[in-house]
């Protein structure tokens, strides 16, 4: 078992939370992991990413070597294309279909490029709205990726519960977003 995952988007979209839930679930299964994050300046509305590596064996580099990523999970369609050099030839892209408009670009061109790459495009915003918690888009993305992670779904759900343990309504909406995301792919 070895999974290399890039999680990306724009600062403030909850990317670190996705990563932390995945590594907690990996830990429950006794796997090793490394999660390389970027903090600081780039958080301010800029492009952000996490390199996440999970393995049965020893992991050396915290950064995924180019051409080794199994998955790119993106909260934003343009951002999904920024890290293509890391993706394996047969790697999978799962991305939000909704543009974050703090910069301008042609959405149609980006979406058709993602379709060319056989990306799975998910209506994260629509799912989050259904849960009544617009901030649950990140858990919808995690849900839509769950069958590609090589981790037990129940462990992922437990880790969501642990993350939002302080507020029952948040826990519920985030779990629902995960499930709806899961069903969407």
């Amino acid at each position: 078992m070895e999974k290399n995952i890039i999680i990306c988007g724009v600062g403030g979209q909850g990317i670190l939370t996705i990563a932390r839930i995945i590594v907690s679930a990996a830990q429950k299964e006794g796997l090793s992991f490394k999660q390389a994050e970027i903090h600081g300046m780039s958080q301010r509305g800029g492009a952000v990413y996490v390199h996440l590596r999970i393995s049965k064996g020893k992991i050396y580099s915290p950064i995924i070597p180019e051409g080794y990523a199994d998955l790119i999970l993106s909260m934003e369609p343009l951002e999904a294309l920024r890290y293509l050099k890391y993706l394996k030839k047969n790697g999978k892209i799962i991305s939000s279909i909704w543009k974050l408009p703090n910069i301008s670009y042609d959405e149609k061109v980006v979406v058709s490029e993602l379709k060319r790459l056989k990306a799975i495009l998910v209506d994260l915003k629509g799912i989050a709205q259904k849960t009544g918690n617009p901030l649950a888009e990140n858990m919808a993305l995690l849900g839509s990726a769950s069958s590609y992670l090589g981790l037990k779904e129940e462990n992922l759900k437990d880790c969501i519960r642990e993350t939002f343990i302080s507020k029952a309504t948040l826990m519920e909406s985030n779990l629902k977003a995960f499930e709806l995301g899961n069903k969407s792919t």
Partner: peptide, 29 residues
């Protein structure tokens, strides 16, 4: 990074996927 180490040691870097469109940068703002 791994690619710099690879190229110093004369090892091959995997041919990467590339976007066929120009990506606008998204700097911090």
């Amino acid at each position: 990074n791994c690619e710099i180490v690879k190229s110093a040691l004369g090892k091959k870097i995997i041919q990467n996927l590339k976007a066929s469109i120009e990506l606008p940068p998204r700097p911090p703002q």
